[in-house]
């Protein structure tokens, strides 16, 4: 085991004793990710990252730009394979993304050629109706049920029924992300992966979205992996914050520098101290995005 992996394991065990009893839903084992072109030295992104995530956790992954947060998310998504090590979901590696993981990226989260309703029901349509499914009366009935369910999700996301027939470009950024969350959740994924999903939103909308995702997590119990570069957002949302950073040389790749359990609290002093700890570890030279307007979820 590399020194970085060992350090990561120690951190993980220090702050996460429950992991000894509960089987991990996601297991990241000594992962190394390098990108390289022939004839050029490989660029190391992650080095020796090990992490266990249990079902029902809300994990925030935080770190400086370019530290490999999104790479780590893509590994869990199975969009990318590690150069070394492995990522297991429910105990097995996956060759490509599948419906066990819902995905909400920062951009391009909706299909532009489909209306809001069609976007939300897309997953149900492809998995249960098929290409020529509309011909069968039973499936036509099923399609009606999907639409009713989608409308329910739409309302739950705080959107109006009249928004159902709109195209994504007719919605604001916040509304688009709400639809994207509904689109992912309607498939009842075991894991919801959100890659800087709120980064492009204005502070007010962002705070609203933070409340919404926290409520949905409480309701559904879905395991959430939330990538952000905002320490405050990481703390107020998550049950555990994973901070990535470089401990060695610049080209040595990033590892977990902090694995912090977050108590369920609205107490501003506790939140502030946690943020300070993340900032000191992850952003020693400053530079964390931490806009105050994106405040704590309402009690």
């Amino acid at each position: 085991m590399t020194p970085a992996a060992a350090a990561s394991k120690v951190l993980d065990n220090q702050t996460d004793p429950a992991s000894l009893n509960t089987p991990a839903l996601i297991r990241i084992q000594d992962v190394l990710v390098e990108y390289g072109q022939p004839g050029k030295p490989a660029k190391r992104i992650l080095n020796g990252v090990s992490l266990d995530i249990r079902a029902g956790e809300f994990i925030s992954i935080v770190g400086q730009t370019g530290c490999g947060k999104s790479t780590l998310l893509r590994l869990v998504l199975a969009e990318e394979m590690p150069t070394r090590g492995q990522v297991l979901v429910e105990g097995s590696p996956r060759p490509q993304p599948d419906r066990r993981c819902g995905y909400v990226p920062q951009k391009y989260s909706l299909f532009p050629d489909r209306t809001v309703l069609e976007n939300i029901t897309f997953g149900l349509e492809v998995t249960e109706i098929g290409f020529f499914g509309g011909i069968s009366p039973a499936r036509r009935l099923r399609r009606k049920e999907f639409r009713a369910e989608a409308i329910g999700y739409l309302r739950r996301m705080g959107l109006r029924e009249s928004d159902a027939s709109k195209y994504p470009h007719q919605l604001s950024g916040g509304m688009q992300q709400r639809v994207a969350i509904a689109q992912a959740l309607i498939m009842r994924p075991k894991i919801l992966l959100m890659d800087e999903a709120f980064s492009a939103l204005d502070p007010g909308t962002r705070a609203g979205m933070q409340r919404l995702i926290k409520d949905l997590w409480r309701e559904t119990g879905t395991t959430v992996l939330f990538v952000t570069h905002n320490p405050r957002e990481a703390v107020i949302l998550a049950t555990r914050v994973i901070a990535l950073g470089r401990t060695g040389a610049e080209d040595d790749g990033a590892n977990i520098v902090l694995n912090l359990s977050v108590p369920d609290t609205n107490e501003e002093s506790k939140i502030a101290s946690l943020i300070q700890r993340i900032e000191q570890t992850t952003f020693p030279g400053g530079g964390a995005e931490n806009d105050e307007v994106a405040g704590a979820p309402e009690a």
Partner: peptide, 8 residues
């Protein structure tokens, strides 16, 4: 990727 995660 979104398509895959939605079961397509």
């Amino acid at each position: 990727v979104k398509g895959f995660t939605l079961g397509a």
